[in-house]
């Protein structure tokens, strides 16, 4: 028996048929003593089975592939074209609950090799010429979190210097504690600039720009 219900699968298949274009790699990095690794693998596998354009691979978190994609934690789910997106669009911890929908939207955007932002935000994104890492701490029961995760991922799709990383705060409590995460979404950029809440792109980008400027 699978994790994703038949009705949900049917719906997702329809969406994928409509929107998927280029090949998408759905990579799951797993390791020992990892409570949710099996689930992450199973979910990714089930999603990949729904469409030919999605290719699933599982790698150990201590493998060469993990190094190549910059992955250090298990489970991590990476959505990529295997090339210019690298490991920049990722989920550390299980993309379940509300984050499942973020993962599906990411698959579609990565397959389209683009994402929607306004012209104004696109122009601001274009100036970012140094690495910026956006970490978004979430809980799976937070309805506001996917918006913050998707913004980070859309920015990462549109700019090669940006990494967008969801972190499931309950699965990684020490990591969450390091940044005193007590309300989600809690966003940490370049381990420096922080804010809490699901802001519109125009406000979100200001924090990203601030972090980028500080890195100059």
């Amino acid at each position: 028996m699978g994790y994703i219900g038949d009705k949900d699968k049917e719906y997702l298949k329809g969406e994928f048929d409509k929107y998927l274009k280029e090949k998408v790699l759905l990579l799951v990095f797993t390791g020992p003593n990892c409570q949710y690794c099996n689930v992450a693998t199973a979910i990714a596998q089930e999603v990949a089975e729904l469409h030919d354009a999605i290719e699933f691979h599982e790698y150990p978190v201590d493998s060469e592939e993990a190094k190549k994609y910059g992955v250090e934690h298990a489970p991590t789910v990476v959505i990529t074209d295997g090339d210019k997106f690298g490991g920049r669009i990722r989920y550390v911890g299980l993309p379940s609950g509300y984050e499942f929908s973020s993962m599906i939207e990411d698959i579609i955007d990565v397959s389209r090799r683009t994402a929607e932002v306004s012209e104004e935000v696109r122009a601001q994104l274009e100036q970012i010429d140094k690495p910026v890492r956006i970490q978004v701490f979430v809980t799976p029961t937070c309805p506001y979190c996917p918006r913050a995760v998707r913004t980070a991922h859309r920015f990462a799709i549109l700019n090669e210097n940006i990494t967008g990383e969801m972190i499931e705060a309950i699965e990684f409590p020490e990591w969450a504690n390091k940044w005193n995460v007590m309300s989600v979404p809690h966003i940490v950029i370049n381990e420096d600039v922080q804010f809490i809440g699901a802001y519109p792109d125009e406000q979100y980008i200001q924090y990203v720009i601030e972090a980028w400027k500080k890195a100059q």
Partner: peptide, 8 residues
């Protein structure tokens, strides 16, 4: 933890 799925 419960594994739920919210569809986009």
């Amino acid at each position: 933890m419960e594994v739920g799925f919210v569809l986009p």
